[in-house]
Design a binder for these strands. Structure first.
Length: 493
RNA sequence: GCCUCGUUCGUCUAGUGGCCAAGGACGCCGCCCUUUCAAGGCGGAGAUCACGGGUUCGACUCCCGUACGAGGUACCA
């Protein structure tokens, strides 16, 4: 019944940790599958055993989970088109490789890597494009038998048509035409018997009934080879969408070493997955000329493939930061506390509160602290730093910070003394109660509110920027606030 | 080198022949609000739509070329 529904796949290879650009392409496929009610399949392209990195798949799957993307068929959960690891499909590829050889579309190549290297060097010297010279394509039966008898190792190469053109129909770029003579005979099965991407993904996509292939546009150059293989096998070609890659600030393809964060880093910095999800959807895709804040459900509803652009987009962390702030502000206070707590409670070295602060944090108190900081936060990760003065016993600041613009140490001291006395005389420790008389005091002292309040702000927090002063003091508590003002009075004496 | 793709404000982008002397957002600047910092409101700078030719009554939108950028050119994906 889902037979004619779209089936999309994402096929990562576990050769490293996938960066955020990979998730963007994954997101597009996932969104479209969900938009159409089709299926989303995950397939692990692990044929390059030598480069496989331990744990890469798990981290990748965790990233999907973090971002809120599920899949209908794939590793762990399986599915009716499995297995979903290419290393477990080896026999399948060999079968089709054999079929291609039988039909004359592929051949065994016995060239050694030494010979190939020599050949390429010679081509480079003559400024020719490096291309396999098809030496083994034209071996006689006798030569072939001799090679086999000698037990030479071989690979399978796909025999590209020598003449003519291949047109790749791409839903984003339109038709792209290649001269067949520009494309050499690629290896499709290695000497260890494993198929390469060029063969494996075609066999899999076909057998798994994939209807839409979304992949990075760096695949365009090998796409003509793929259509030829589809043709040779007599299979229907899925719709191709070569989506633009996400670029780094230097406009180069993202690479983990270089300029791309992994989802783990984003999580550690305290970006919300829903913000990252929203942000990612907007690189290379746009709904209209103004809407850019979307919930997951909205995105699923409005996401279509025809709005994907053709040009590569740069990953702009500043905008992500802004969007994350928007999402944080939309959180209820309870949610904020719930989600910020783990960040605040991690070790100081990892960005948490100073280790001197006992864990676990008092929820009620943290909640009132976060209430004040809510609209000021851009990431969950920065919470600890910004609110630490609420939790710490000792404040560290330069005495000079107490002195506000247009003030001197003497007047500051005097102001603090008068403020202390006034505050001490208050019946209630609520900001509405503190503020009016404090304003009067400032006026009486001939000071601007900021001059008096600024000094107190530094006294109670050790900082020049905090949430509104009296609310801060209310949360900090009477004891602690007065003790800190007292200290400031001593320091400024 | 060869092949291919791409090119609208610094960045993400809207724009599918007239609605565009190009709209939104981030960032930046200024003003307002204001006890600081944010948030919010208002305003501003910022793109001769890479350049040059066509096609057309009319082009950011179609075609060709050039430049620049990127990708590919592996028994990697």
């Amino acid at each position: 019944m889902t037979e004619h529904k779209p089936r999309l796949r994402f096929a990562p290879s576990p050769t490293g940790f996938m960066h955020i650009g990979g998730y963007r392409t994954l997101l597009f496929s996932w969104l479209y599958a969900r938009h159409t009610g089709g299926s989303f399949i995950l397939r692990i392209e692990d044929t390059d055993v030598a480069r496989t990195v331990e744990g890469a798949i798990e981290v990748m799957l965790d990233g999907m989970r973090w971002l809120g993307m599920d899949y209908d068929e794939g590793p762990i959960i399986g599915g009716q088109y499995g297995p979903y690891y290419q290393t477990q499909r080896k026999a399948l590829y060999q079968e089709y490789a054999h079929q291609l050889i039988e039909s004359g579309h592929a051949y065994r190549c016995y060239c050694t890597s030494e010979r190939l290297e020599q050949m390429r060097n010679a081509q480079a010297a003559q400024k020719l494009p490096p291309r396999y010279d098809r030496h083994c394509r034209y071996l006689t039966d006798e030569e072939r038998d001799a090679n086999e008898a000698a037990g030479l190792k071989w690979v399978v190469r796909f025999a590209m048509p020598l003449e003519g053109e291949t047109v790749v129909h791409d839903e984003i770029h339109g038709d792209i035409t290649f001269k067949n003579s520009d494309i050499d005979d690629a290896v499709i099965v290695k000497s260890d018997g494993f198929a390469l991407y060029h063969l494996a993904h075609i066999v899999d996509d076909h057998l798994m009934g994939i209807t839409h292939v979304l992949r990075g546009d760096d695949w365009i150059s090998s796409a003509p080879r793929h259509v030829q293989i589809y043709n040779a096998l007599g299979w229907e070609i899925p719709l191709f969408y070569h989506v633009p890659n996400v670029l780094g600030k230097d406009k180069k393809k993202l690479s983990k070493r270089h300029n791309a964060p992994s989802w783990v880093e984003l999580k550690e910095k305290g970006f919300l997955p829903e913000a990252v999800f929203n942000f990612l959807a907007l690189i290379g895709w746009a709904y209209d000329d103004k809407t850019e804040l979307f919930t997951r459900e909205e995105l699923i509803r409005v996401f279509t493939l025809d709005h994907i652009g053709a040009a590569g987009g740069i990953y702009d962390q500043d905008k992500l930061l802004w969007m994350n702030g928007v999402y944080i502000r939309q959180l209820s206070l309870e949610d904020l506390v719930e989600r910020a707590l783990p960040y605040m409670e991690r070790p100081e070295a990892e960005g948490g509160l100073p280790d001197s602060v006992g864990r676990s944090l008092d929820r009620q108190y943290t909640s009132s602290v976060l209430h004040l900081e809510h609209e000021r936060l851009k990431t969950l990760g920065e919470a600890a730093e910004v609110v630490s003065f609420f939790f710490v016993d000792e404040l560290h600041y330069e005495t000079a910070m107490l002195v506000q613009k247009g003030m001197d140490i003497g007047r500051t001291h005097a102001g603090l003394v008068r403020a202390r006395d006034l505050l001490n005389s208050l019946e209630e420790w609520r900001h509405e109660v503190m503020e009016p008389p404090m304003r009067e005091l400032a006026a009486e002292l001939g000071l601007k509110p900021g001059q008096l309040f600024g000094a107190i702000r530094v006294a109670i927090s050790g900082r020049t920027a905090t949430p509104p002063l009296f609310e801060t003091m209310e949360v900090l508590g009477r004891e602690r606030s007065m003790a800190r003002i007292e200290q400031a009075i001593e320091r400024s004496a």
